[in-house]
């Protein structure tokens, strides 16, 4: 017991001391980092919308029987899953302008992250779609339910319950991956921290704050995801 209390006390004293020592400069470097956090949140939000939509479209595409649709979805998934996100961002931001396609760093960042994670998400969606028991489709056929209604009203609501844990994982992963957009001149948490560190040399404090910010976002997603999972599985028999 005793050593643990000592360690905790030491840690507490360290944090208090650090806060006191840092307090004077905190008001100098914290606001820019928080502005970076807003950029990270904006990028994350739009990338997430793109990532989830692409996941559903490509996931459904791979699940389809139509060869052209399935092939297109497969090419998309393989291209973006097999390439580095950082290089994709460079491509969108530095290479495409050579072909006359110029986009703002924000758009390039959202596109890069969304396309990349959409490819991973598509596999989660496809897996969830295949995990819905085959009998559901047979019952729908026997009741003459139109294929589109089957997908929208029967297949998807059940698949969502299965895909939530995988998608929550990817969402957390995606928020952290947005750090890479700092490489295409966007001032997000990571870029702002590097800048402030160069100005004030409070390395420990600045990067600890950056770490905590990402951690808070991840926790937020985690609890949101748990609530979603609970919501979507509330009527389903619990799996043993």
């Amino acid at each position: 017991m005793k050593p643990r209390i000592a360690i905790l006390a030491a840690l507490g004293a360290f944090i208090v001391g650090l806060s006191v020592a840092t307090f004077a400069e905190l008001k100098l470097f914290l606001p820019p980092i928080l502005r970076g956090a807003v950029v990270t949140l904006q990028i994350s939000f739009w990338s997430w919308l793109l990532f989830v939509s692409l996941s559903c479209i490509a996931g459904l595409g791979r699940w389809q029987r139509n060869l052209l649709v399935r092939w297109t979805a497969t090419v998309y998934i393989e291209v973006f899953r097999g390439t580095s996100l950082l290089v994709i961002l460079f491509w969108l931001f530095f290479v495409l302008p050579e072909f006359g396609i110029i986009m703002s760093p924000f758009v390039a960042g959202v596109l890069g992250v969304g396309l990349n994670f959409g490819a991973y998400g598509a596999e989660v969606v496809r897996g969830a779609l295949t995990a819905v028991p085959k009998g559901q489709r047979e019952a729908a056929i026997a009741l003459n339910i139109k294929p589109r209604n089957f997908v929208v009203r029967i297949l998807f609501p059940q698949a969502i319950a299965i895909m939530v844990p995988g998608m929550v994982n990817l969402t957390i992963e995606m928020i952290k991956a947005t750090a890479l957009v700092s490489a295409i001149t966007l001032v997000d948490i990571t870029y702002a921290s590097v800048q402030q560190n160069q100005l004030y040399f409070r390395t420990l404090e600045i990067f600890t704050i950056a770490l905590l910010l990402y951690y808070c976002f991840a926790q937020f997603v985690r609890f949101g995801g748990a609530a979603l999972e609970e919501y979507f599985t509330r009527h389903l028999a619990k799996r043993r």
Binding site: P133, G135, Q136, E138, A139, I154, P157, Q158, A161, H235, L236, A237
Partner: peptide, 8 residues
């Protein structure tokens, strides 16, 4: 045989 009701 397995009912195949829509569970949701």
């Amino acid at each position: 045989q397995n009912f195949n009701l829509f569970p949701h």
